[in-house]
Design a protein around this nucleic acid. Structure first.
Lengths: 196, 196
DNA sequence: CGGCTTGGTGCACTCACTGCAGTTAATACG
DNA sequence: CGTATTAACTGCAGTGAGTGCACCAAGCCG
């Protein structure tokens, strides 16, 4: 691990921490990027070197999580069904005892701009899941629509469960797994399991 | 109908028309609000009197559509199942031969900011549908999460179908109805039909 | 006609975000 | 070891979305 790389990650982490803190104490709208940067001891320009938008600083490990998701999609450990795997990673893999995570999802439940950001990042998962489904269903336009529809539905369930966690502290795992199973895995069982 | 009200609607319609035209000919990012306003013969400030964001001008009849949706939810004509009703209104009620609509959804499929806007507007439907489901399931936190999860899933299917229409011209109605039925109506049939 | 309402205007402002031309320090290389 | 290169960070000037406010002018209503 480089010293440069180390410094870079440190800066990014510090920015994300101060962003989350300021968002939750002063409110998202009342917090300026300038303030976050100042709190982290860097310039405002540097903030945008690490995060493309103000909202993105609330989800600092998104790219990493998507990468993990993709990596584990193919290996022997994960369930063949990518939708349950999605749920496992998004809701199940969540450390529900982490205060930072909790703060993040409480904010998500309250702030519109962060919901937008969340929906935006979900599209990365959508693309991956849809591509996975299309391995079985083919590349035809109609298959693509169906794959995206299913992926979108699954993400909708996960998203709602996570927001429910932020709002009321409902454990996202149970409800998410149960609904996904009833809604997607059972009705679409055969075509999905035939992928393995 | 007032003359004032008439003038107001006319201005709004003109703004929306020029917005859509400029977005699709010059690109969304390359179009400024200033340009749209100038093309419509009003000031930039007036644009924001009619639309809260630049993206919102691409979906000028959103509020009206949601109002229609809510109005029809309770009456005797609509199916008891609000999710199929959702699909009916969003995808089925779509005039697939209207060039303006087509342009709108082609743009939607291409421009990230418009997808964001679409996801944002979908939240209005989510709230209504979830509230409807909660009439049967109760107000408890867990019921709320389940209701929002189901509503979100249905919206995900509709959204993907509509984007598929924009991208490839696939008729959104068939795929949307079929998936929704298989995914939600059948597995959740009993609790939903007991509402009627 | 005279007061009130309301759609539209002009202006100044904030703030997110970008492009560019640096500086400094870590690193790679001869 | 000294030098060239790379890359994190900075400062600055700019664009453009969106807002608050005071204001006009034209429709509405008694």
């Amino acid at each position: 691990m480089n010293q440069r790389e180390l410094q870079r990650r440190q800066t990014r982490r510090t920015l994300a921490e101060h962003a989350l803190r300021l968002f939750s104490t002063n409110g998202f709208d009342a917090t300026t990027v300038e303030e976050i940067a100042a709190a982290a001891g860097v310039s405002q320009r540097t903030f945008f070197l690490h995060f493309s938008t103000k909202s993105a600083a609330a989800f600092p490990d998104h790219e990493e999580r998507v990468r993990d998701f993709v990596d584990r999609l193919g290996d022997g450990h994960s369930v063949g069904n990518p939708l349950l795997h999605l749920c496992e990673v998004l809701a199940g893999g969540l450390d529900t005892s982490s205060p930072t995570r909790r703060t993040r999802y409480q904010l998500l439940a309250q702030v519109g701009a962060l919901r937008d950001e969340d929906a935006r990042t979900d599209r990365d998962y959508e693309v991956v899941v849809a591509a996975y489904l299309m391995q079985a269903w083919g590349e035809a336009a109609e298959a693509r629509v169906r794959a995206h529809a299913i992926a979108n539905a699954a993400l909708g369930v996960c998203r709602a469960s996570l927001i429910g966690w932020g709002e009321d502290g409902i454990d996202p795992r149970e409800v998410c797994f149960e609904i996904l199973h009833r809604m997607i895995c059972s009705p679409f069982d055969a075509p999905l399991h035939s992928l393995q």
